[in-house]
Structure formats: structure tokens, C-alpha cells
Design a protein around this nucleic acid. Structure first.
Lengths: 214, 214, 214, 214
DNA sequence: CAATAACCGAGACGGTACGTCAGGTCTTTTC
DNA sequence: GAAAAGACCTGACGTACCGTCTCGGTTATTG
């Protein structure tokens, strides 16, 4: 499940000339993550990334529109790699598990420093917001859907009746889970330990099961 | 309820010399908010702020260590002004109310663009993180405490028994509420409308009342 | 007789990449002289020079280490242009001529204000002193050598026997002539008029012819 | 023969109020020389001088109009102290002696770095030029006059007949001697050793005795 | 001996230039 | 025609020093 490709050539009929090096793409994204670890978002410069990747700055600008988009692509791969939903036997356990995975991901220096920054930029850049949505947000909503399916199969949650309400609830849950973990980790700057994960999962689970009707 | 003063002179024994102009502080913070509205976080420069405030750049650097800290102070005042917790008769209504207030605050151009940016910077700057905590986070936790008190008075929530657990729960709720609203607004980039607020409040309320013990 | 080029790329093997604009060099040096005329040495700023030359400040710093070095190069060209030694028929006349030329040069606003300033800076900056020596001092010693040759051809001075002593004497004469004119013009702040030039030339000529041996 | 007092109160009728501290004057001038030695002219700042002297910057500005004037006063005292004209028995020896004294003075870090700088500034500041003239130049012309008197007493030079021509010649000699030594020391940056002093004195002496008429 | 006037230290103030750095673009030569 | 190299323009950065100002407080002379 390879993550987002960089912006492919826009013009349709491009066949002639030297082809773009695929190796360069990998090197650039790896260099970006590496630089992010060492320097953090504010210290990361495209010139430095280019130098680490053994690539000219020009090449970099030919493929990404700027620093933010590059970082989104570099970080998105980590989300695919690091987040999954192993079946832990109960919805409570599954929630705890994904919460702790997500917290661990946010604790990595690459993501910790970069995620809020690109979100901040995205408030003024629609293309960037769209890139974040497709490369990160929408891809990870699968976890919510999968978790609910399993819980329904186990009988922990009722079957969906209205598909529209179902989708809205999934979005709500995603915002609550992701938002709470991000806020705990980056704003409150407190650890997401076993205790917190358990208490958060209990709160969420209580809310989900209490809301019989709506 | 005046919000955080800028970094006062660190040396304790400061009585001599020309005193700092209090007028300048006000002008600088106002200019910062104004510039934030017009230019957004990335476009905001300290030189421009100084010019708008009719103040020299050096004056600005004498009082704040940098752009981020200044913005935190400038924005913190808005949180004090814009967030309160009028008694709407029920916990559900109180939650809905504060959620919508907070969402409205995050929709203002000053905060939308700046808040995530300073949080991003704070991941690499302990002093900045501390400033955010004292100027914004800790101050707004009062809303959670007040809401719970009222709900307890109404009999909607049980009385606290263990003060330690009580404090931990307050923190959890704060992370959930603030995180969910921020994520909905800035990451998912969807509106916090009446419906969402109602459904979120119901979810949270369910979780709170379901968790009898713990 | 084009004067000193600015500091060329230090690394030897530079062939690739965009070459430095030769046009920029000319524009910068011209702008420097122009700014020097209008603002004088203390008022001259590199930012202003860059703006006049239609060039970025960085371009300027890429080629010169600072204000002083730039001014040396800018002024050196004037020395090449403005000083020569037309054959006026006698050593006395030749000395008078070059003295008045030099005084006229020192009376120009570009040189008057800048020359002493860079010499002052050079007392603490070896690289600058070396630049002054190669770009100005050594180049103008040619005038002394040429004048002596002519005088010898006319029989006004004896032929050199010892080349070492000859060089030392040339240096001495250069210091005396240049030093006296500079001191008269800038320190005593009195004009180098016909009378002064004639009396100075007579003094020097007397010294030269009196010293038969060494 | 105490050298120039700093600018006294301009208003005539000042008698009342606290008088200016004479101690401060001494401390400031000493601090100036000290800072000049350590930092050189370009690195010397009035704030630093004030701190060294244990004095407020205000006090300093109350007495001198700026950096240059202060330095002139600080340096002028050295000229008085370090230059004299002991009778060495012949005009040649006297010239050599004063030349070497002057060169030694110019080799001190205070003077080396400061002298050209204030001269440079004086080209744009008439008050400063006047201060240099009265505090330094005119005071040291005494050496020329004294040397000539002695040489006349010894019979090495003819008695003056025309007082006007006599004064003009003294000025010329002063420019030649001071100029040559300054140029040798600061521009050519070569040492004024025994040999150079002897050859220079010989040249000058030759010029003086050759010029019978005129 | 009180009033007054000028001094003093400290340090904040508005300015201005500094030299550096990053973002992007453009121009070469090489592959 | 893409790639590497590197010069280019733009514009902000944070610092330093300038010379002025505003404080609280300290000497002197004058009344």
C-alpha cells in the first residue's frame, strides 16, 4: 500500500527527454524524514533536504510545490506503516490499542513536530488541506470503520440502520479519538499511558453504548 | 480578568531606570491581533507588528523572545474574552454551548491560523510550551471545573469522592472537548454546526454518566 | 588597464552552475562610487549600494567581505584612471604635476572621505590591508619608477647602481610624496595650490640631488 | 601642559547646581584609551566606554558630542606626553629622533587605529576638524619650530628673513614629516626602523639645505 | 536650612544598519 | 530535455549601537 506519489507531470504527452529518477523520490522523502528528526519543522530547509538527498534544489521544486506538501507526503507513509487495528478481543481493548499506537506515532520526532505545522499552514492553503485529507485523514478513517464492524460482529454495538447517520458517527468518533490524543500529546504535553488510554476508551465506549437512539 | 503580562524584567531588584511603557504592551498585542487577521501566521512579521504598534522592533524583542511567544500572549486574551459558561440549564446544553463558543473562536482568522502554529513550535521549545500552558490551557480548564460543579449541583453527575481522580477526569474531559473541536475545525475542516455539537455533547454525556465508578 | 577583480570564487574547479554576472560587478562598483559621493563614507550602507546597483544584498556579500573591501575596489579604479605622469620636461615639473593630480583626486568626495577610513580599518584587518596594498599602493608606485627613469634619461638623476637600494629609495619617495599630499589635504586641510606644489617639489628635488651616494 | 578640556557648558552664566565631576572626565578618557587598545576604533562603542568608566551614557553625551570628539581628546594627551625634541647635536639626528618617536607613537594600538579614523570623519565634520587641529596638529608644530631654531643656532640652517615664508616652510616640513611617517606606518605598513629614519632625514635635510634661495 | 538647579546612575525608547538565512527562480554545463 | 550546480532576487531575521528620554536620587549653591 504505497502512499501518495508526488505530483506527477501535469502535461499529458510527456515521453521525451530524460525520465525522472524514481530513486530520487525515495531519497528525497527519506531525507525529509531524517531532517525532520534532527532539525524539526522550523529548522527544516529545502536546501538541506536537497543536499541530504544528493539532489539539486531544482529537482525538488519540480516535484513538490513547497515545504509543506513535501512534509505531508513524507509523513503520510509513517501513518500507513505504523497504524493498524489488530483484533484484541473487545472494543475497549481495540480502542486502547489504536490510541496507544497513535500516541506512539505522535511521539516520534518526525510527526510530533511536523503534523501541527502542516495543519497550521493548511488553514491558508486549500491545496495543502486537500493533500492532508487524502494522504492522511481519509486513509486512517478505515480504522474507525474496521473497529466498528468488528464490534458489531461481536455484538458490542448495534448494526447500522441509516447509512448516512452511520457515516456521520464515524466522522465524529474519528475527530474525538484523533483530537483527544493529539491534544493530550501536543498541547497538554502529558503522556498517553496505559491509564489514560483505559480511561479514555471507557469514556468513549460509554458514550457509544449509551447513545441507543439518537 | 486581565491575561498574562509579557515577560517582566527577570532580575528581581529592578526599580531604577526608565520604566517600561504599559501603553506599548497594549499597542503591541493589539497590533499583533490585527496583523494576524490581515496576514495570517506565516505572513506576520515582527517588523510589521512593531510598525503598526508605533514601536521600535527592539522594544518588542526586549519583552518577548520571539514571534511565537508574542502570538500566544496576543491570542490568550481572546480566549479569556470569548469563552465563558453561561448556565443553560442542563449539562448537555452547557457542553453544546461551550463547544460552539470554542468553535467560533477557532473560526476567527487570528486563532485559526496561529494556534496550531504555536503548538507546532512548542514541540521544540519548552519555554513556549510552558507559556501556552499557563496563558491558555490552564486558564480554560476553569470551564470544565465550573461545568462539572453545576452538573453536580443539578444532580446530573455524582459528587467527587477522590480529589485526585477528579482532577484526572477533568483533564481527560478537557483534552477530549478541546481536541475534538480543534480536529473537527482545523483538520477535518468541517463546520461545528448545531447538529455536530448536539451529537458530540450526547456522546460525551453518555460516557460521563455511564462511567459510574472508576 | 582594468583594476582588481573582486574576490573570485576561491575553489579552483568551478566550472558548473550559473556564472557570476560581470554586469553586476560593474554596476556595484559604480553604485558604490555614486553613493560615496552623495552620502560619504559614514553614510554609505551596503543595502543602499545594492539597491542602486539593482542587485540583491546577498550578491554583494557573495563577492566582497564587507563595506571596506568594496570601497577599496571601487576607489582603486579612480586611482588608475586619474593618475598618470605626462612628460612635462623636467623632474621638478613632473613632481609638481603628479602632486597636483593626486591632490585633485583626494579632493573628490569619493576619495576624500573614504580613503582614510579604509586605512583606519586596515589597521585591524590584515586582509583589508593587503587588498589596499595590491589594489592601490603597489599599482601607483609605477609613477615613481617612471618618473625616475625619465629623470635619469634626462640626466637629472644618476643611474641606479644597486637595485636593492634603488627599490628602497623608490618606496621612500612614494611615502614622502603620498604622505605629504594626504597630510596637507586631509589633516592640515589646506589647499595644494601651485605654490605649495612648487615648494614641495623643490624640497624633494633638493633632497634627491643632494643625496649623491646613499 | 594639560591638554584640551572637554566641551564645557555652553551657556555662559552657569554657576548654580551640582558641578560636573572632574573625576568622571579622567575616568572616561582613560576608559576610552583602554577600549581603543582592546577593541580598536571600529569596535569601540560609547556604551562600552561608559560601562568601563563606571559612568552613565548620558554623562558621556553631556560632555562630548560623539565618538570622534571623545577619541580626539583621549588621543591628544598621548601626543603631548610622547613627543618631544631632545637636543641630539645635529639637525639630522634631531629629525631622526622625532621621526622615530612619532613612529613609535603611531605603533601604539590606541593611536594606530584611531588617528586615521578621526581624520576620515573630519572630512565631513568641520567642528571635528577644528578640534583635531587645535588639540593635536597645532600643538605639535612646536616641534618643527623648535628644531629649526636649534639648527639655526648651530648654523646648519640660515636665519629667517621673511616671517611669512618662514611660517609656510614650517607648515610644509610638518606635512612632509608627519605625512611620510604616517604613510610609511599605516598605509605601506612597513616599519620605521633606523635605516628608514636615517634615509628620510637625509632626504629632508638635503632638500632643506639645497633650497638656498626661494 | 530649605529651595532650587544641575548633576548622576540606570535603563527603556525609536531608529537604522548590520550580516545571515531561507524561499523560490533562473541560467549554465553535463548527461 | 532532465539533472546538478550554483548564482540570483526577495524579504525577514535577530542583534548591535546610536543618541534621546525618563525615571528616582544626589550634591552643590542660593535665599
Amino acid at each position: 500500500m504505497t502512499s501518495a506519489a508526488p505530483s506527477s507531470r501535469q502535461g499529458g504527452s510527456a515521453r521525451t527527454g530524460r525520465p525522472r529518477s524514481a530513486e530520487a523520490d525515495r531519497a528525497i522523502l527519506a531525507a525529509t524524514r531524517e531532517a525532520l528528526v534532527e532539525l524539526g519543522w522550523p529548522g527544516l530547509t529545502l536546501g538541506d533536504v536537497a543536499a541530504r538527498a544528493g539532489v539539486a534544489k531544482t529537482t525538488l521544486y519540480r516535484r513538490w510545490p513547497g515545504k509543506s506538501a513535501l512534509v505531508v507526503d513524507a509523513v503520510a507513509a509513517l501513518f500507513d506503516e505504523r497504524l493498524d487495528l489488530p483484533d484484541l478481543g473487545s472494543l475497549q481493548a481495540d480502542i486502547e490499542g489504536v490510541v496507544r499506537q497513535f500516541a506512539a506515532l505522535l511521539d516520534r520526532p518526525e510527526t510530533k513536530t511536523a503534523l501541527m505545522a502542516v495543519v497550521a499552514e493548511s488553514t491558508r492553503d486549500d491545496a495543502l488541506r486537500e493533500r492532508i485529507r487524502t494522504a492522511i485523514v481519509d486513509r486512517q478513517k478505515r480504522l474507525v470503520l474496521l473497529g466498528r464492524e468488528r464490534a458489531q460482529a461481536r455484538g458490542e454495538l448495534p448494526r447500522d440502520t441509516d447509512p448516512v447517520a452511520s457515516a456521520r458517527t464515524a466522522d465524529l468518533i474519528f475527530d474525538v479519538v484523533a483530537g483527544a490524543v493529539v491534544h493530550r500529546t501536543l498541547v497538554s504535553a502529558e503522556p498517553v499511558d496505559t491509564d489514560w488510554a483505559r480511561r479514555f476508551a471507557a469514556l468513549l465506549l460509554g458514550g457509544l453504548t449509551a447513545a441507543t437512539g439518537d
